[in-house]
Nucleic acid binder design. Structure first.
Lengths: 332, 332
DNA sequence: ATGAAAGCGCTAACAA
DNA sequence: TTGTTAGCGCTTTCAT
């Protein structure tokens, strides 16, 4: 595998000229450029990124950290990032925190050693200590936070309006005629789940229909226990006709429980979930849900990162994406 | 962020000695080592991997290519790889081929530019031209193939015994009393799908029960069309009592179709799939399936890679993992 | 056990 | 438009 030295030798040009062809090739005459390119082709030249990085101080690498890669949401984001970054000359390297602060920090340190030029990260559920992140921010390596954002000042972030998403879902149920709603809620300590719960309530309070009843329950994907909870909820209010689940997995779980209880969806009860995971399209009936625009989130985050690389003095930006209602068979 | 130069200055030692502490530290007196380590701590020393890589020719990076990261199987493999590699001093970088030969080659080229020391790859469904892979093999960069393996001589590979997995699944259906089987088959051009198809047939041929009927169909997750195919298959043989799907997604799809046709699972028809994706545990009924030992596959592949890095003249190895039958509600 | 010095492949002043 | 040259931060012979 040849380097620019061989090309220089073959073409009779200097190292600098050859280098320029691959960088600021406008400073080189077309004829020379041609010659170099041909030689490069012939010798199967592969630029040595390490050497370029060392010399220029630019690694051309962006680091991405997500809690888990096996997750339609995060992998969708990664795809969005790839889409933007792919033809920018940057490479991306992906690490998983597995929801562990320790692994997250390991990944960040490993990024620093690799001299990544920018970091895109969705922080783990467990992370409470942001000192390393703060240190990186101070060191002027651009950091873009997405979805799960720490409570820090002056940071770049791309998030989804979860409150708005819950309102969309709840209003949709109401529009479909539901007047006795149940929200299957997530752990309120996770801020996005709490926002979805609030959105559910706010949508009902703000509705022009004043006769809407609702209750809020928590399920745990434990069939025996959950079926009891659901049964009890239905016993307490036999007219329940709409369910909004805070996530797709739990929505599918609820759908299965409803079938077990011989409740037909959507005829007797309409069901909507949150996330637009791929399997919501594979169930019977297909589950209505809220799309999180994950690809767009990745694209925005990547664009922000690239902007920050181009202009070091840019002000931190906060982008909030609007979720999208996906109507499928479970509500219509 | 300090370098070894600063450490050398502070400690009054030479660059060489400091460098040795971080590499072959046994060649350094304990006292000196202590001093260097303390100074490193104090200065928050971060080794510059780029520089080390450039000089030593060792990047300490392994490249991993999978078709898709949002896939229970491949992300399980990645986790297995991470587990082994994490405390070996190597970094891993992950790329997705999205089942495209072009993207796969882009990823490989980008790995070569980054001077990765080894490559772990599961080739895309679309890949038919192995010239780049062959070129890499010739260049002595170790390549470990896993799961989807090209038909080349003398390569390192870790695969699952798909034929055996299909036999396990089919025998399980027969053991449960099924005598009229249907196999939902995948594209036979993908060798693992073809092996599953053959395993299905072989299990029936080798069974001590001589009265087993079977048919083989293909579905495409297109509800309208697939329901017709399934209906026709049932019409042709109304006694169908067992279905073996080549994958979990299509198995779930079939489960839904069966429900639509008012066929109860497992009472009338028993259903088993292949893959042990997480959602097979979330359906109603839960789907019996074949586990692919993905984490173990990743671990074996990573170990093979590391072995190849340590000893360049090692002979290529072929590891075949045994799949595991997971019995759930859909067959019992 | 430690040090001096060369150089990995490339970029970027500066010079021509 | 092209060439000369001095490093980027580290590893690694070869001395000592």
């Amino acid at each position: 595998m040849a380097g620019i030295k061989e090309i220089a030798k073959i073409t009779g040009l200097s190292l600098a000229t050859v280098s320029r062809v691959f960088n600021e090739s406008h400073l080189v005459s077309p004829k020379t450029r041609e010659k170099v390119l041909r030689a490069a082709e012939e010798l199967d030249y592969q630029p040595n990124i390490m050497a370029a990085a060392l010399r220029s101080g630019k690694s051309k690498i962006l680091g991405v950290i997500v809690p888990e890669v096996n997750n339609f949401f995060f992998s969708g984001i990664i795809n969005g990032i790839e889409k933007i970054v792919s033809d920018s000359g940057y490479n991306i390297i992906i690490s998983q925190s597995h929801e562990s602060q320790e692994k997250e920090n390991e990944a960040l340190n490993s990024f620093l050693k690799l001299k990544v030029e920018g970091i895109l990260i969705s922080i783990s559920k467990e992370t409470t200590d942001f000192s390393l992140v703060q240190k990186i921010l101070d060191s002027k390596v651009p950091v873009i936070f997405f979805d799960r954002v720490p409570n820090l000042e002056h940071i770049n972030s791309v998030t989804l309006d979860d409150h708005r998403g819950a309102i969309l879902a709840t209003e949709h149920l109401i529009d479909q005629g539901c007047r006795n709603l149940v929200h299957i809620a997530g752990d309120p300590k996770v801020s996005i789940f709490d926002k979805r719960r609030k959105g559910f309530i706010d949508a009902i309070l703000k509705s022009r229909h004043k006769n809407i009843k609702y209750s809020i329950i928590e399920l745990n994907a434990d069939v025996q226990n959950d079926i009891g909870i659901l049964q009890k909820t239905f016993d307490a209010n036999s007219n329940i006709d709409g369910v909004f689940a805070f996530g797709d997995e739990i929505g599918l779980h609820a759908l299965n429980l409803l079938k077990t209880l011989d409740v037909s969806v959507p005829e007797q009860v309409k069901l909507i979930a949150f996330g637009n995971a791929d399997f919501t399209n594979l169930t019977e009936p297909k589950i209505s849900t809220i799309d999180q625009e994950c690809s767009q989130m990745g694209e925005l985050a990547a664009n922000l990162a690239i902007k920050n690389l181009q202009d070091k003095n840019i002000n931190p930006q906060t982008k909030v994406l609007l979720p999208r209602l996906i109507v499928r068979d479970s509500t219509s």
